[in-house]
Computed example of a mutant assay.
Amino acid sequence: MSQRQTLAAAITALSALALFAALLYLVGPERIFSGKEPGASDRRRTPPFVRKGDTVFIPDGSPYRSHIVVAPAELRNVSLSRVVPGTVEADPARTVRVLAPVNGRVSELNVELGDNVKKGQPLATIDSGDLAQAIADAEKARAAARLTKSALDRATGLNKAGGLAMRDLEQAQNDYLQATSELKRAEARLEVIGDNSKLTGQRKITLNAPIDGTITALDTAPGDFIDNTTAPMMTISNLDRVWVTASVREKDLSFVKKEERVEVSLVAYPDKKFPGKVEIISQLLEADTRRNKVRIAFDNPNGIFKLNMFATVRFFSPPSKRVVVPPSALMMVNDESSVFVEVAPWTFKRKPVEPETDIEGLTVVSGLNAGQKIVVRGGILLND
């Protein structure tokens, strides 16, 4: 073979190799070596879903069909509920604020915060100059009443004997009336001071417990000077019966009816429910929080309910027909809940709903009609 023929054969081989490399790049080795026509596998490949406007279609052959379950929304007779925060409070009708009847210094304090006391038990002793003044005023009034009574008796006798003018008799009668009025005022003052108290001398007074209960507030100490008789020294509350006060949002007031049942849970006893009923619904809505105070009374003989305990209160509405769906049917997008409704065979459309509460493994929703077919499982595949 001549040199020219050898060169021509080499050029032909290189051209063939370059053409084969171009085919590999453009078509792919799997199509060349398999003998399949380019594009055949692409035509057999089925998309998992197809979007058509605001609907999603699952075509025949899509792997999604085996993962998506459709069922109708159910209508059930349910009682909705609302859970709101609450606190344990003393019954105002069983609470007494102990006031000092006179100004003075606390010379002795017999109780501490949280102590249980019995009616008539000594609470504190006050050394008071006002008390000494009140006793002195009463003694002077008694003396004046005795003196004017004697003068009136003499004037009456002299007038009958004709030895005293009528004007003088009337003056004696007026003096006696004024003296007796002053005596009544001074004695009434002592009675007020001695109410729930015991006068133990010219200057000292002992305050006694007006009811059985617990010292729930203490605002004094030995040596403290009392100069405001309208400020309570301490507060006594009978905790045999207490209030649980719930703060109900304005939009949930439709759930609150007087005498309706409620369930109360305490943080201290999370596994225990305390059944009760609504007794008082405040007529005043708090302007700053837009909440309403609702009170439930509980007997508390064993002291389970303690003041200022945190509680949760569940209110129930009367039973009614409501639409329920499985929780798995609910999808979240931008903090909004929705479900996928079947508008045609294997064609779904997102529909916003509002979950209200969970009951027996189902979720009560509004915005959906009973019987509408929805995706109850596998909706996450469409939720993008």
Score class of each variant (00 low, 15 high):
1 M>Q: 14
5 Q>C: 10
6 T>D: 15
9 A>Q: 15
10 A>S: 10
13 A>Y: 09
13 A>N: 08
18 A>N: 03
21 A>D: 02
22 A>P: 05
24 L>S: 09
29 P>A: 13
30 E>W: 14
34 S>E: 03
38 P>H: 02
40 A>I: 04
44 R>M: 13
51 R>H: 08
57 F>Y: 14
58 I>L: 11
60 D>V: 12
68 I>L: 00
72 P>A: 01
76 R>N: 09
77 N>H: 15
84 V>Y: 04
85 P>R: 07
87 T>Q: 14
95 T>Q: 00
97 R>Q: 09
100 A>I: 08
102 V>L: 13
104 G>Q: 06
105 R>W: 06
106 V>Q: 08
107 S>R: 06
110 N>P: 07
117 V>Q: 00
123 L>C: 01
123 L>Q: 03
138 A>G: 03
138 A>P: 00
143 A>K: 09
144 A>G: 04
145 A>Q: 07
149 K>R: 15
152 L>Y: 03
154 R>Q: 12
169 L>N: 10
173 Q>A: 14
176 Y>G: 11
176 Y>L: 11
192 V>M: 14
193 I>A: 06
194 G>M: 02
194 G>W: 01
195 D>H: 15
197 S>K: 08
199 L>S: 06
200 T>R: 12
202 Q>V: 07
213 G>K: 03
215 I>P: 03
220 T>L: 07
222 P>R: 03
239 L>E: 03
240 D>T: 12
240 D>E: 15
244 V>D: 01
245 T>I: 11
245 T>S: 15
248 V>R: 06
253 L>E: 05
259 E>Q: 14
260 E>Q: 12
262 V>C: 00
263 E>R: 10
266 L>E: 01
267 V>C: 02
269 Y>C: 08
270 P>F: 05
270 P>C: 04
272 K>V: 14
274 F>Y: 09
280 I>A: 07
298 F>H: 00
303 G>M: 05
304 I>E: 13
305 F>G: 00
319 P>S: 13
321 K>H: 08
329 A>E: 11
333 V>F: 11
337 S>I: 08
340 F>L: 06
341 V>L: 05
345 P>E: 13
346 W>T: 05
350 R>I: 03
352 P>V: 04
353 V>I: 15
353 V>D: 10
354 E>D: 09
361 G>N: 00
369 N>I: 05
369 N>V: 12
376 V>R: 01
377 R>N: 04
380 I>M: 07
382 L>Q: 03
384 D>G: 12
